[in-house]
Design a protein around this nucleic acid. Structure first.
Lengths: 197, 197
DNA sequence: CAGAACTTTCAGAACTTTCTGAAAGTTCGA
DNA sequence: TCGAACTTTCAGAAAGTTCTGAAAGTTCTG
Protein backbone atom coordinates (compact mmCIF):
# COMPACT_ATOMS: atom_id res chain seq x y z
CA UNK A 1 0.00 0.00 0.00
CA UNK A 2 2.54 2.52 -1.14
CA UNK A 3 1.17 5.98 -1.67
CA UNK A 4 2.01 5.81 -5.34
CA UNK A 5 0.65 8.72 -7.34
CA UNK A 6 -1.12 6.64 -9.97
CA UNK A 7 -4.15 7.86 -11.79
CA UNK A 8 -6.70 5.92 -9.81
CA UNK A 9 -9.70 8.20 -9.70
CA UNK A 10 -11.22 8.01 -13.11
CA UNK A 11 -14.82 7.84 -11.99
CA UNK A 12 -16.77 10.53 -10.26
CA UNK A 13 -17.62 8.42 -7.20
CA UNK A 14 -16.89 10.45 -4.08
CA UNK A 15 -14.18 8.21 -2.70
CA UNK A 16 -14.61 8.99 0.98
CA UNK A 17 -11.51 7.79 2.77
CA UNK A 18 -13.28 5.20 4.87
CA UNK A 19 -11.32 3.18 7.41
CA UNK A 20 -13.03 0.15 5.87
CA UNK A 21 -11.09 0.43 2.63
CA UNK A 22 -8.25 -1.56 4.12
CA UNK A 23 -10.62 -4.27 5.26
CA UNK A 24 -11.93 -4.67 1.75
CA UNK A 25 -8.43 -4.70 0.34
CA UNK A 26 -7.48 -7.44 2.78
CA UNK A 27 -10.53 -9.48 1.83
CA UNK A 28 -9.77 -8.96 -1.86
CA UNK A 29 -6.21 -10.09 -1.30
CA UNK A 30 -7.40 -13.23 0.44
CA UNK A 31 -9.71 -13.95 -2.47
CA UNK A 32 -7.04 -13.25 -5.08
CA UNK A 33 -4.56 -15.56 -3.39
CA UNK A 34 -7.10 -18.32 -2.97
CA UNK A 35 -8.39 -18.04 -6.53
CA UNK A 36 -4.80 -18.14 -7.77
CA UNK A 37 -4.15 -21.31 -5.82
CA UNK A 38 -7.35 -22.92 -7.12
CA UNK A 39 -6.37 -21.83 -10.60
CA UNK A 40 -3.23 -23.94 -10.49
CA UNK A 41 -5.41 -26.94 -9.65
CA UNK A 42 -7.77 -26.16 -12.50
CA UNK A 43 -4.94 -26.06 -14.99
CA UNK A 44 -4.89 -22.28 -15.21
CA UNK A 45 -1.74 -20.32 -14.59
CA UNK A 46 -1.61 -18.74 -11.19
CA UNK A 47 -1.15 -15.22 -12.58
CA UNK A 48 -4.05 -15.63 -15.00
CA UNK A 49 -6.31 -16.69 -12.16
CA UNK A 50 -5.06 -13.86 -9.98
CA UNK A 51 -5.74 -11.21 -12.58
CA UNK A 52 -9.17 -12.67 -13.12
CA UNK A 53 -9.82 -12.70 -9.40
CA UNK A 54 -8.86 -9.04 -9.10
CA UNK A 55 -11.07 -7.97 -11.99
CA UNK A 56 -13.95 -10.13 -10.83
CA UNK A 57 -13.92 -9.08 -7.22
CA UNK A 58 -13.48 -5.36 -7.81
CA UNK A 59 -15.97 -5.44 -10.67
CA UNK A 60 -14.38 -2.29 -12.05
CA UNK A 61 -12.58 -1.90 -15.33
CA UNK A 62 -8.86 -1.63 -14.61
CA UNK A 63 -5.93 -0.68 -16.80
CA UNK A 64 -2.89 -2.89 -17.34
CA UNK A 65 -0.87 -0.45 -15.26
CA UNK A 66 -3.23 -0.71 -12.31
CA UNK A 67 -3.23 -4.51 -12.43
CA UNK A 68 0.56 -4.57 -12.61
CA UNK A 69 0.90 -2.44 -9.53
CA UNK A 70 -1.81 -4.06 -7.50
CA UNK A 71 -0.53 -7.62 -8.06
CA UNK A 72 3.18 -6.80 -8.45
CA UNK A 73 3.60 -8.62 -11.70
CA UNK A 74 5.39 -7.51 -14.84
CA UNK A 75 3.97 -5.63 -17.75
CA UNK A 76 4.60 -8.58 -20.01
CA UNK A 77 2.73 -10.99 -17.79
CA UNK A 78 -0.25 -8.71 -17.49
CA UNK A 79 -0.44 -8.38 -21.25
CA UNK A 80 -0.26 -12.13 -21.93
CA UNK A 81 -2.66 -12.89 -19.15
CA UNK A 82 -5.26 -10.38 -20.32
CA UNK A 83 -5.03 -11.76 -23.81
CA UNK A 84 -5.89 -15.22 -22.54
CA UNK A 85 -8.76 -14.00 -20.40
CA UNK A 86 -10.03 -12.06 -23.35
CA UNK A 87 -9.93 -15.14 -25.58
CA UNK A 88 -11.80 -17.08 -22.94
CA UNK A 89 -14.37 -14.29 -22.92
CA UNK A 90 -14.05 -13.89 -19.20
CA UNK A 91 -12.78 -10.34 -19.54
CA UNK A 92 -13.80 -7.60 -21.92
CA UNK A 93 -11.83 -4.63 -23.13
CA UNK A 94 -13.58 -1.33 -22.70
CA UNK A 95 -12.52 2.18 -23.54
CA UNK A 96 -12.85 5.15 -21.28
CA UNK A 97 -15.49 7.71 -22.18
CA UNK A 98 -12.70 10.27 -21.98
CA UNK A 99 -11.44 10.29 -25.58
CA UNK A 100 -8.06 11.59 -24.49
CA UNK A 101 -7.45 8.48 -22.39
CA UNK A 102 -6.05 5.90 -24.77
CA UNK A 103 -5.61 3.07 -22.33
CA UNK A 104 -7.70 -0.06 -22.55
CA UNK A 105 -9.60 -1.00 -19.46
CA UNK A 106 -10.42 -4.59 -18.62
CA UNK A 107 -13.62 -5.69 -17.01
CA UNK A 108 -14.55 -9.17 -15.84
CA UNK A 109 -17.78 -10.97 -16.59
CA UNK A 110 -19.87 -10.63 -13.42
CA UNK A 111 -22.45 -13.36 -13.94
CA UNK A 112 -21.19 -16.37 -12.00
CA UNK A 113 -23.20 -18.82 -14.11
CA UNK A 114 -21.57 -17.55 -17.27
CA UNK A 115 -18.24 -17.77 -15.53
CA UNK A 116 -18.68 -21.42 -14.66
CA UNK A 117 -20.08 -22.40 -18.02
CA UNK A 118 -17.17 -20.75 -19.77
CA UNK A 119 -14.66 -22.59 -17.62
CA UNK A 120 -16.48 -25.89 -17.99
CA UNK A 121 -16.70 -25.55 -21.76
CA UNK A 122 -12.99 -24.77 -22.03
CA UNK A 123 -12.08 -27.75 -19.90
CA UNK A 124 -14.30 -30.10 -21.81
CA UNK A 125 -12.68 -29.06 -25.05
CA UNK A 126 -9.22 -29.54 -23.68
CA UNK A 127 -9.59 -32.58 -21.47
CA UNK A 128 -12.47 -34.53 -22.82
CA UNK A 129 -13.09 -34.02 -26.51
CA UNK A 130 -9.65 -35.37 -27.53
CA UNK A 131 -10.66 -38.71 -25.98
CA UNK A 132 -13.54 -39.01 -28.39
CA UNK A 133 -11.44 -37.86 -31.31
CA UNK A 134 -8.34 -39.96 -30.76
CA UNK A 135 -9.26 -43.08 -28.87
CA UNK A 136 -10.37 -44.83 -32.04
CA UNK A 137 -6.83 -44.64 -33.35
CA UNK A 138 -5.67 -46.75 -30.42
CA UNK A 139 -7.59 -49.79 -31.67
CA UNK A 140 -5.69 -52.62 -33.33
CA UNK A 141 -7.89 -52.80 -36.38
CA UNK A 142 -11.22 -52.16 -38.05
CA UNK A 143 -14.30 -53.46 -36.34
CA UNK A 144 -15.04 -56.02 -39.02
CA UNK A 145 -11.62 -57.54 -39.68
CA UNK A 146 -10.50 -60.95 -38.48
CA UNK A 147 -8.79 -60.84 -35.15
CA UNK A 148 -7.13 -63.05 -32.59
CA UNK A 149 -8.64 -63.23 -29.12
CA UNK A 150 -6.05 -60.89 -27.70
CA UNK A 151 -6.75 -58.34 -30.39
CA UNK A 152 -10.45 -58.59 -29.70
CA UNK A 153 -9.83 -58.02 -26.00
CA UNK A 154 -7.76 -54.96 -26.72
CA UNK A 155 -10.25 -53.37 -29.08
CA UNK A 156 -13.08 -54.16 -26.72
CA UNK A 157 -11.44 -52.16 -23.94
CA UNK A 158 -10.89 -49.20 -26.21
CA UNK A 159 -14.51 -49.44 -27.30
CA UNK A 160 -15.78 -49.51 -23.73
CA UNK A 161 -13.78 -46.40 -22.99
CA UNK A 162 -15.13 -44.71 -26.09
CA UNK A 163 -18.69 -45.60 -25.28
CA UNK A 164 -18.32 -44.17 -21.79
CA UNK A 165 -16.82 -40.98 -23.19
CA UNK A 166 -19.65 -40.57 -25.66
CA UNK A 167 -22.13 -41.03 -22.86
CA UNK A 168 -20.57 -38.29 -20.73
CA UNK A 169 -20.25 -36.11 -23.77
CA UNK A 170 -23.97 -36.38 -24.39
CA UNK A 171 -24.68 -35.63 -20.76
CA UNK A 172 -22.46 -32.57 -20.85
CA UNK A 173 -24.16 -31.33 -24.00
CA UNK A 174 -27.58 -31.82 -22.50
CA UNK A 175 -26.59 -29.82 -19.46
CA UNK A 176 -24.86 -27.03 -21.30
CA UNK A 177 -27.80 -26.57 -23.66
CA UNK A 178 -30.13 -26.31 -20.72
CA UNK A 179 -28.76 -22.96 -19.55
CA UNK A 180 -30.23 -22.01 -16.23
CA UNK A 181 -32.86 -24.67 -16.60
CA UNK A 182 -30.38 -26.97 -14.99
CA UNK A 183 -31.37 -25.75 -11.57
CA UNK A 184 -34.91 -26.96 -11.99
CA UNK A 185 -33.79 -30.09 -13.76
CA UNK A 186 -31.47 -31.08 -10.96
CA UNK A 187 -34.32 -30.93 -8.47
CA UNK A 188 -36.36 -33.24 -10.61
CA UNK A 189 -33.40 -35.53 -10.98
CA UNK A 190 -32.86 -35.69 -7.24
CA UNK A 191 -36.51 -36.53 -6.67
CA UNK A 192 -36.57 -39.23 -9.32
CA UNK A 193 -33.40 -40.84 -8.12
CA UNK A 194 -34.33 -40.53 -4.48
CA UNK A 195 -37.69 -42.21 -4.88
CA UNK A 196 -36.43 -45.19 -6.87
CA UNK A 197 -34.31 -46.91 -4.23
CA UNK B 1 12.69 -55.29 -27.02
CA UNK B 2 15.92 -56.59 -25.62
CA UNK B 3 15.92 -60.36 -25.17
CA UNK B 4 16.39 -59.91 -21.45
CA UNK B 5 16.02 -63.13 -19.54
CA UNK B 6 13.30 -61.92 -17.17
CA UNK B 7 10.82 -64.36 -15.72
CA UNK B 8 7.86 -63.41 -17.86
CA UNK B 9 5.94 -66.64 -18.15
CA UNK B 10 4.29 -67.03 -14.81
CA UNK B 11 0.98 -68.33 -16.06
CA UNK B 12 0.35 -71.56 -17.89
CA UNK B 13 -1.21 -69.90 -20.97
CA UNK B 14 0.32 -71.42 -24.09
CA UNK B 15 1.89 -68.26 -25.46
CA UNK B 16 1.88 -69.08 -29.15
CA UNK B 17 4.29 -66.74 -30.93
CA UNK B 18 1.72 -65.13 -33.19
CA UNK B 19 2.79 -62.59 -35.78
CA UNK B 20 0.00 -60.38 -34.45
CA UNK B 21 1.81 -59.81 -31.16
CA UNK B 22 3.65 -56.84 -32.63
CA UNK B 23 0.43 -55.31 -33.89
CA UNK B 24 -0.99 -55.45 -30.42
CA UNK B 25 2.14 -54.00 -28.95
CA UNK B 26 2.00 -51.14 -31.41
CA UNK B 27 -1.64 -50.46 -30.54
CA UNK B 28 -0.79 -50.64 -26.84
CA UNK B 29 2.04 -48.18 -27.36
CA UNK B 30 -0.28 -45.77 -29.14
CA UNK B 31 -2.74 -46.03 -26.29
CA UNK B 32 -0.05 -45.58 -23.64
CA UNK B 33 1.32 -42.49 -25.30
CA UNK B 34 -2.10 -40.97 -25.80
CA UNK B 35 -3.23 -41.72 -22.25
CA UNK B 36 0.00 -40.20 -20.96
CA UNK B 37 -0.65 -37.04 -22.92
CA UNK B 38 -4.23 -36.83 -21.68
CA UNK B 39 -2.96 -37.43 -18.17
CA UNK B 40 -0.94 -34.24 -18.26
CA UNK B 41 -4.12 -32.38 -19.16
CA UNK B 42 -6.02 -34.02 -16.34
CA UNK B 43 -3.41 -32.98 -13.80
CA UNK B 44 -1.86 -36.42 -13.55
CA UNK B 45 1.84 -36.96 -14.12
CA UNK B 46 2.63 -38.37 -17.50
CA UNK B 47 4.43 -41.41 -16.09
CA UNK B 48 1.57 -42.16 -13.71
CA UNK B 49 -0.87 -42.11 -16.58
CA UNK B 50 1.43 -44.24 -18.71
CA UNK B 51 1.82 -46.91 -16.08
CA UNK B 52 -1.92 -46.93 -15.60
CA UNK B 53 -2.47 -47.19 -19.34
CA UNK B 54 -0.13 -50.16 -19.58
CA UNK B 55 -1.78 -52.01 -16.72
CA UNK B 56 -5.25 -51.18 -17.94
CA UNK B 57 -4.74 -52.15 -21.54
CA UNK B 58 -2.87 -55.38 -20.88
CA UNK B 59 -5.22 -56.30 -18.08
CA UNK B 60 -2.54 -58.54 -16.65
CA UNK B 61 -0.80 -58.16 -13.32
CA UNK B 62 2.74 -56.93 -13.99
CA UNK B 63 5.76 -56.61 -11.73
CA UNK B 64 7.67 -53.38 -11.18
CA UNK B 65 10.52 -54.81 -13.21
CA UNK B 66 8.31 -55.55 -16.18
CA UNK B 67 6.80 -52.07 -16.12
CA UNK B 68 10.25 -50.52 -15.88
CA UNK B 69 11.45 -52.34 -18.95
CA UNK B 70 8.36 -51.92 -21.02
CA UNK B 71 8.12 -48.17 -20.49
CA UNK B 72 11.83 -47.46 -20.05
CA UNK B 73 11.46 -45.60 -16.82
CA UNK B 74 13.48 -45.88 -13.66
CA UNK B 75 12.87 -48.14 -10.74
CA UNK B 76 12.20 -45.15 -8.51
CA UNK B 77 9.58 -43.71 -10.80
CA UNK B 78 7.75 -46.98 -11.08
CA UNK B 79 7.64 -47.32 -7.33
CA UNK B 80 6.31 -43.81 -6.67
CA UNK B 81 3.85 -44.11 -9.50
CA UNK B 82 2.44 -47.44 -8.34
CA UNK B 83 2.06 -46.05 -4.85
CA UNK B 84 -0.09 -43.23 -6.19
CA UNK B 85 -2.19 -45.51 -8.35
CA UNK B 86 -2.64 -47.78 -5.37
CA UNK B 87 -3.82 -44.89 -3.19
CA UNK B 88 -6.26 -43.88 -5.88
CA UNK B 89 -7.50 -47.46 -5.90
CA UNK B 90 -6.99 -47.73 -9.63
CA UNK B 91 -4.43 -50.48 -9.21
CA UNK B 92 -4.31 -53.39 -6.82
CA UNK B 93 -1.35 -55.31 -5.54
CA UNK B 94 -1.63 -59.01 -5.95
CA UNK B 95 0.72 -61.81 -5.08
CA UNK B 96 1.66 -64.67 -7.29
CA UNK B 97 0.26 -68.05 -6.39
CA UNK B 98 3.81 -69.29 -6.53
CA UNK B 99 4.91 -68.81 -2.92
CA UNK B 100 8.57 -68.65 -3.93
CA UNK B 101 7.93 -65.56 -6.04
CA UNK B 102 8.18 -62.63 -3.69
CA UNK B 103 7.47 -59.87 -6.16
CA UNK B 104 4.32 -57.84 -6.01
CA UNK B 105 2.23 -57.75 -9.13
CA UNK B 106 0.08 -54.80 -10.03
CA UNK B 107 -3.27 -55.08 -11.70
CA UNK B 108 -5.49 -52.29 -12.93
CA UNK B 109 -9.19 -51.93 -12.26
CA UNK B 110 -10.91 -53.09 -15.45
CA UNK B 111 -14.38 -51.65 -15.01
CA UNK B 112 -14.39 -48.39 -16.95
CA UNK B 113 -17.26 -46.96 -14.90
CA UNK B 114 -15.34 -47.45 -11.70
CA UNK B 115 -12.33 -45.92 -13.37
CA UNK B 116 -14.19 -42.75 -14.28
CA UNK B 117 -15.92 -42.45 -10.95
CA UNK B 118 -12.63 -42.79 -9.15
CA UNK B 119 -11.04 -40.08 -11.25
CA UNK B 120 -14.06 -37.81 -10.94
CA UNK B 121 -14.19 -38.22 -7.20
CA UNK B 122 -10.49 -37.44 -6.82
CA UNK B 123 -10.80 -34.36 -8.96
CA UNK B 124 -13.85 -33.09 -7.11
CA UNK B 125 -12.00 -33.42 -3.83
CA UNK B 126 -9.01 -31.57 -5.16
CA UNK B 127 -10.52 -28.94 -7.40
CA UNK B 128 -13.98 -28.32 -6.10
CA UNK B 129 -14.40 -29.04 -2.42
CA UNK B 130 -11.82 -26.43 -1.35
CA UNK B 131 -14.05 -23.78 -2.90
CA UNK B 132 -16.84 -24.66 -0.53
CA UNK B 133 -14.50 -24.91 2.42
CA UNK B 134 -12.49 -21.75 1.92
CA UNK B 135 -14.55 -19.24 0.00
CA UNK B 136 -16.33 -18.12 3.17
CA UNK B 137 -13.01 -16.90 4.53
CA UNK B 138 -12.76 -14.46 1.63
CA UNK B 139 -15.74 -12.45 2.85
CA UNK B 140 -15.16 -9.13 4.55
CA UNK B 141 -17.29 -9.85 7.58
CA UNK B 142 -20.07 -11.78 9.22
CA UNK B 143 -23.41 -11.82 7.45
CA UNK B 144 -25.14 -9.82 10.13
CA UNK B 145 -22.64 -7.06 10.85
CA UNK B 146 -22.96 -3.45 9.69
CA UNK B 147 -21.32 -2.85 6.37
CA UNK B 148 -20.61 -0.15 3.86
CA UNK B 149 -22.02 -0.54 0.37
CA UNK B 150 -18.70 -1.62 -1.03
CA UNK B 151 -18.36 -4.27 1.62
CA UNK B 152 -21.84 -5.51 0.87
CA UNK B 153 -21.00 -5.76 -2.82
CA UNK B 154 -17.88 -7.76 -2.09
CA UNK B 155 -19.57 -10.21 0.22
CA UNK B 156 -22.44 -10.60 -2.19
CA UNK B 157 -20.11 -11.75 -4.93
CA UNK B 158 -18.45 -14.26 -2.67
CA UNK B 159 -21.89 -15.50 -1.64
CA UNK B 160 -23.01 -15.92 -5.24
CA UNK B 161 -19.93 -17.96 -5.95
CA UNK B 162 -20.54 -20.07 -2.86
CA UNK B 163 -24.15 -20.66 -3.74
CA UNK B 164 -23.21 -21.82 -7.23
CA UNK B 165 -20.58 -24.16 -5.81
CA UNK B 166 -23.04 -25.65 -3.36
CA UNK B 167 -25.46 -26.21 -6.19
CA UNK B 168 -22.94 -28.11 -8.28
CA UNK B 169 -21.82 -29.99 -5.24
CA UNK B 170 -25.36 -31.16 -4.63
CA UNK B 171 -25.74 -32.16 -8.26
CA UNK B 172 -22.49 -34.12 -8.16
CA UNK B 173 -23.60 -35.90 -5.00
CA UNK B 174 -26.96 -36.76 -6.49
CA UNK B 175 -25.34 -38.22 -9.55
CA UNK B 176 -22.62 -40.12 -7.74
CA UNK B 177 -25.12 -41.67 -5.37
CA UNK B 178 -27.07 -42.92 -8.33
CA UNK B 179 -24.29 -45.36 -9.24
CA UNK B 180 -24.95 -46.94 -12.57
CA UNK B 181 -28.40 -45.42 -12.40
CA UNK B 182 -26.73 -42.42 -13.96
CA UNK B 183 -27.50 -43.78 -17.37
CA UNK B 184 -31.17 -43.83 -16.61
CA UNK B 185 -30.86 -40.53 -14.79
CA UNK B 186 -29.35 -38.82 -17.75
CA UNK B 187 -32.21 -39.89 -19.98
CA UNK B 188 -34.66 -38.43 -17.50
CA UNK B 189 -32.62 -35.26 -17.39
CA UNK B 190 -32.58 -35.00 -21.17
CA UNK B 191 -36.34 -35.50 -21.37
CA UNK B 192 -37.07 -32.95 -18.66
CA UNK B 193 -34.78 -30.37 -20.18
CA UNK B 194 -35.88 -31.07 -23.69
CA UNK B 195 -39.58 -30.68 -22.99
CA UNK B 196 -39.23 -27.37 -21.19
CA UNK B 197 -38.17 -25.12 -24.03
C1' DC C 1 19.84 -64.70 12.46
C1' DA C 2 22.14 -64.16 7.78
C1' DG C 3 21.53 -63.14 3.43
C1' DA C 4 18.74 -63.01 -0.82
C1' DA C 5 14.99 -60.74 -3.11
C1' DC C 6 12.40 -57.18 -3.43
C1' DT C 7 10.61 -52.21 -2.56
C1' DT C 8 11.07 -47.43 -1.13
C1' DT C 9 13.45 -43.16 -0.55
C1' DC C 10 15.80 -39.07 -1.73
C1' DA C 11 19.54 -35.82 -3.42
C1' DG C 12 20.65 -33.94 -7.34
C1' DA C 13 20.15 -33.81 -12.67
C1' DA C 14 17.24 -32.82 -16.45
C1' DC C 15 13.47 -30.86 -18.18
C1' DT C 16 9.31 -27.73 -18.38
C1' DT C 17 6.79 -23.81 -17.30
C1' DT C 18 6.27 -19.18 -16.12
C1' DC C 19 7.92 -14.53 -15.45
C1' DT C 20 10.59 -10.38 -16.38
C1' DG C 21 11.73 -6.18 -18.71
C1' DA C 22 13.77 -3.99 -22.50
C1' DA C 23 12.86 -3.38 -27.25
C1' DA C 24 9.76 -3.42 -31.08
C1' DG C 25 5.16 -2.55 -32.64
C1' DT C 26 0.74 -0.03 -32.93
C1' DT C 27 -2.46 3.70 -32.75
C1' DC C 28 -3.94 8.22 -32.52
C1' DG C 29 -4.14 13.35 -32.46
C1' DA C 30 -2.21 17.40 -34.18
C1' DT D 1 4.08 12.45 -40.85
C1' DC D 2 5.79 12.91 -36.07
C1' DG D 3 6.01 11.69 -31.53
C1' DA D 4 3.55 10.51 -27.34
C1' DA D 5 1.01 6.97 -25.17
C1' DC D 6 0.03 2.58 -24.95
C1' DT D 7 0.39 -2.65 -25.96
C1' DT D 8 2.74 -6.78 -27.43
C1' DT D 9 6.64 -9.71 -28.07
C1' DC D 10 10.44 -12.48 -26.91
C1' DA D 11 15.11 -14.00 -25.18
C1' DG D 12 16.88 -15.23 -21.23
C1' DA D 13 16.32 -15.76 -15.92
C1' DA D 14 13.90 -17.86 -12.23
C1' DA D 15 10.96 -21.11 -10.40
C1' DG D 16 8.77 -25.38 -10.39
C1' DT D 17 8.25 -30.26 -11.62
C1' DT D 18 9.56 -34.88 -12.63
C1' DC D 19 13.00 -38.40 -13.23
C1' DT D 20 17.05 -41.14 -12.17
C1' DG D 21 19.72 -44.48 -9.75
C1' DA D 22 22.41 -45.59 -5.88
C1' DA D 23 21.73 -46.47 -1.14
C1' DA D 24 18.78 -47.66 2.67
C1' DG D 25 14.88 -50.24 4.18
C1' DT D 26 11.86 -54.31 4.50
C1' DT D 27 10.44 -58.99 4.39
C1' DC D 28 10.94 -63.66 3.78
C1' DT D 29 13.38 -68.23 3.77
C1' DG D 30 16.31 -71.55 5.45
Amino acid sequence: MKPSATSSDRDATPLTALPSVDEIRAAQDRFIEFWGEMGTRWGVQRSVAEVHALLFITGEPLSAEEIMERLSISRGSVSTTLKQLDEWELVQRVRSKDRADRREYHQAEQDVWKLFYTILRARKRREFDPLIDELGGCRVAQKSSRKTDRQKQHDQKIDELLELCRFFDGLANTISKSGKGIERASKILARVLGSSR
